[in-house]
């Protein structure tokens, strides 16, 4: 079947797809966007986290054809241009939150999603936000440190409001 997706703001035509293909499969195998990782194919690991109409979901559990007309945002679309990093990606590097790297795109998506909704999460909110992302290397300590670093840097970059 043939349908059109909107991925990272651009229309992308999908041709010759099988009805049952997941959004993850289509992104990786048909549209050349392998940033979303394929591990469990059952929503357990979060490595394929993408935003679908501004909700963070597992791309493996989205029927690709059902996503037509919706806005899909992948890890490839996070940074503004080539060779630039978002503050979350930079903090992951600075804090050593990347080991094998397989879970990193999903975790970066999750941390962005959390901090967009909640700029000052407490520890429990932070842990809950990444509870759907499995990492088998880091033990999560450096990932949590990276997220806290982003919170601190964003707070420091925001001019303090004048008290009334």
């Amino acid at each position: 079947m043939t349908f059109r997706l909107t991925v990272n703001g651009r229309p992308r035509d999908v041709e010759g797809a099988w009805l049952g293909e997941s959004l993850l499969y289509v992104l990786r195998e048909r549209l050349g966007l392998p940033g979303s990782k394929n591990a469990c194919e059952q929503g357990e690991c979060g490595s394929c986290s993408v935003r679908l109409d501004d909700r963070l979901v597992c791309a493996c559990l989205v029927l690709a054809a059902e996503a037509q007309g919706r806005s899909v945002a992948t890890v490839e679309g996070l940074s503004a241009g080539d060779r630039t990093l978002t503050d979350v990606q930079q903090a992951f590097l600075d804090q050593g939150a990347v080991q094998c790297g397989f879970c990193t795109p999903g975790l970066v998506m999750s941390v962005h999603d959390l901090l967009d909704r909640n700029p000052a999460p407490d520890e429990l909110e932070l842990r809950e936000a990444i509870s759907g992302n499995l990492c088998r290397c880091t033990g999560y300590g450096r990932i949590l440190a990276a997220a806290r670093t982003v919170v601190e840097r964003r707070a420091a970059a925001t001019p303090e409001r004048e008290l009334p």
Binding site: L19, S22, E41, L63, E66
Partner: peptide
């Protein structure tokens, strides 16, 4: 019948169900 997909797509991805048509409720 497809709603959130979190049950159905697990079955489809694992090859346990092969849809020939889908009605989405979303």
């Amino acid at each position: 019948i497809l709603a959130g997909g979190t049950d159905l797509m697990v079955e489809v991805n694992a090859g346990r169900r092969r849809p020939v048509s889908v009605v989405s409720l979303t």
